[in-house]
Simulated scan of single mutants.
Amino acid sequence: MLILALDSSASPASAALLEDGKILSEFYINTKQTHSQTLMPMAEAVLRLSAKTLDDVDCLAVSAGPGSFTGVRIGVSCVKGLAMARNIPCAGVSTLRAMAENARGMDGIVCAVMDARCGQVYNALFRVENGEIERLCADRALPISELYAECKAYGDKLLLVGDGAALCHKTFSAFGARLLQPQQQFQRASGVAIAAQEQLCAGQTVTPDALMPIYLRLPQAERELKKKQESGGR
């Protein structure tokens, strides 16, 4: 079972190749280059350096959101384009679920957070224990203050991961929340691949045309338009 996974949901971008639970190759980059410049070359590189081709791939996976609207669209579009010609099954993985893989070897409550701006974060909570990951809530967008109130009871069992982790840690550290190390903080394509493997085994893949981005709220332009319409155009 060979899975090619891509992630472009935030500033970093990555590609990884997973075969029967083993990571064969991974390419990670965090520069100011746009994902449209870097993602496909990385996908080609992990295949070539592992002596594989797209014809060998059993599943194409992508972090389908939440995250940067542009980044998520680029990642999903790349996977759809690669998959359609060969009708390869696809797995749209929650970005927050992929992040939880960074803490699989720990014990505690993983608080996966992405900065959604305006004092809000995209978030999901997971329990990690004995190498197993259990989802505790659905992906959501909520104010940091509301997340603080919910997570305070976990104390130092709370593990912060994601590009919003450092932002939350400024206040969450007051009750002992722990910030994962920099190399563990951000989502990676390897985490997407491992989460996708579970979906593949459970028969939860989709056809390329059915693969869609996951947005937890409207883009800013649409939110502003809606607000203007609700106020009567004023």
Rank of each mutant, 00 (worst) to 15 (best):
S94Q: 11
A43M: 07
A149Q: 14
A83I: 05
T38C: 02
D115A: 08
V57H: 00
A177V: 07
Y148K: 08
Q183T: 07
S50W: 00
Y122D: 09
C168E: 08
R97W: 14
N130W: 11
T34H: 15
S68C: 09
V76I: 04
A51T: 00
M84P: 01
S190M: 10
R127M: 11
T95I: 02
R234D: 12
C151A: 12
V57D: 00
G75S: 08
L24V: 01
S9P: 09
G75K: 01
Q120K: 11
N87H: 15
E132L: 15
R223N: 12
Q199P: 02
E150F: 15
L216D: 11
L158K: 01
K80T: 11
I133N: 04
Q33C: 05
L160W: 04
A61C: 05
D115H: 11
C168Q: 07
E19L: 01
T38Q: 04
S190R: 06
R86E: 09
V62L: 02
I144M: 15
A221L: 05
R223H: 09
P41V: 03
I3R: 00
E44D: 09
I214W: 09
G233D: 04
A202S: 14
A202E: 14
K157D: 02
M212S: 13
G65C: 10
G65P: 08
S50Q: 02
E101D: 14
L54Q: 05
S25P: 07
K52A: 00
N87L: 14
D7A: 04
L159C: 05
Q183P: 02
E129C: 05
T205L: 01
R234E: 13
G232L: 06
D115W: 12
L160K: 03
A100L: 14
E129T: 06
C78P: 02
H35V: 04
G119Q: 08
L159D: 05
S50P: 07
E101F: 13
G162H: 03
D163A: 03
V128R: 05
D55Y: 10
Q197I: 09
M99W: 10
C137I: 12
A83H: 06
P219R: 12
G119L: 06
Y28S: 02
A116Q: 12
L216H: 12
M42T: 07
V161F: 04
A51S: 13
L2F: 00
D56R: 00
T207S: 15
A165F: 09
A193E: 03
G155H: 11
Q184V: 05
A149Y: 08
F186V: 04
